[in-house]
C-alpha cells in the first residue's frame, strides 16, 4: 500500500482533472500505470480512498503513540504513511488533567459553600436595583 497522492504530489481531495493531469505528468512509468489503474475508475478510487483514510489514521496514531518504527510497520506503508511525531500530549494524560481540574473546581465550589454565596450575590443585586428605582421615583437624580 503506497500513498499515491503523496507520490503524485496532489492532495487527496483533488478532483479528477487535477489527478489526471498529475498522472499524465508523472515521469515514473510504473507508477503512472498503477495510478492510471486506480484513478481511472471511480469505484476503485473510492475503495482506495477509504483504505487510504484508515491507513493514514493508523499512521497518525502510530506517530502519536511512538509506534512509527514498529515491527509490523514496514515497507511501503511505513515509508508513505509515517508522520513526524506531533506535539500533541497523550490523550490519557490530558484526560487525567481535565478530570483533576474539574475535581479541584468542584472542591473549591464546595469549600466556599457555593449555594449560600449564590444567594448572597443575588440579594445584593436585588438591593442595588431597588435603591436605583427609588432614587428615580423621587427625582433625586438629574435627568
Amino acid at each position: 500500500m503506497r500513498d499515491l497522492y503523496q507520490r503524485l504530489a496532489v492532495s487527496p481531495e483533488a478532483n479528477e482533472q487535477e489527478i489526471s493531469q498529475a498522472v499524465a505528468s508523472c515521469q515514473h512509468s510504473a507508477l503512472r500505470q498503477d495510478a492510471e489503474a486506480v484513478f481511472a475508475v471511480a469505484e476503485r478510487r473510492e475503495t482506495y480512498d477509504t483504505l487510504h483514510d484508515t491507513v493514514s489514521d493508523i499512521g497518525r496514531l502510530r506517530a502519536r503513540l511512538g509506534l512509527s518504527h514498529g515491527a509490523h510497520w514496514q515497507g511501503d506503508v511505513a515509508n508513505d504513511f509515517s508522520l513526524p511525531p506531533d506535539h500533541a500530549i497523550s490523550r490519557h494524560d490530558e484526560l487525567v488533567d481535565r478530570v483533576s481540574h474539574a475535581v479541584s473546581l468542584y472542591n473549591r465550589w464546595r469549600r466556599w459553600r457555593g449555594p449560600w454565596l449564590l444567594i448572597a450575590v443575588f440579594a445584593a443585586g436585588a438591593g442595588i436595583g431597588i435603591a436605583l428605582g427609588l432614587a428615580l421615583c423621587l427625582g433625586l437624580l438629574p435627568m
Binding site: M1, T50, L51, V55, R62, L65, G70, A71, H72, W73
Partner: peptide, 22 residues
C-alpha cells in the same frame, strides 16, 4: 479485510506482540 490487516498489525505493535507470535 485490507483495513483490518493494518489495524491488527497496529494493535500487535501497540501490545508489543512480536510478528512471530502474531
Amino acid at each position: 479485510s485490507l483495513a483490518n490487516h493494518y489495524i491488527l498489525r497496529f494493535l500487535a505493535d501497540l501490545l508489543s506482540i512480536a510478528p512471530m507470535t502474531l
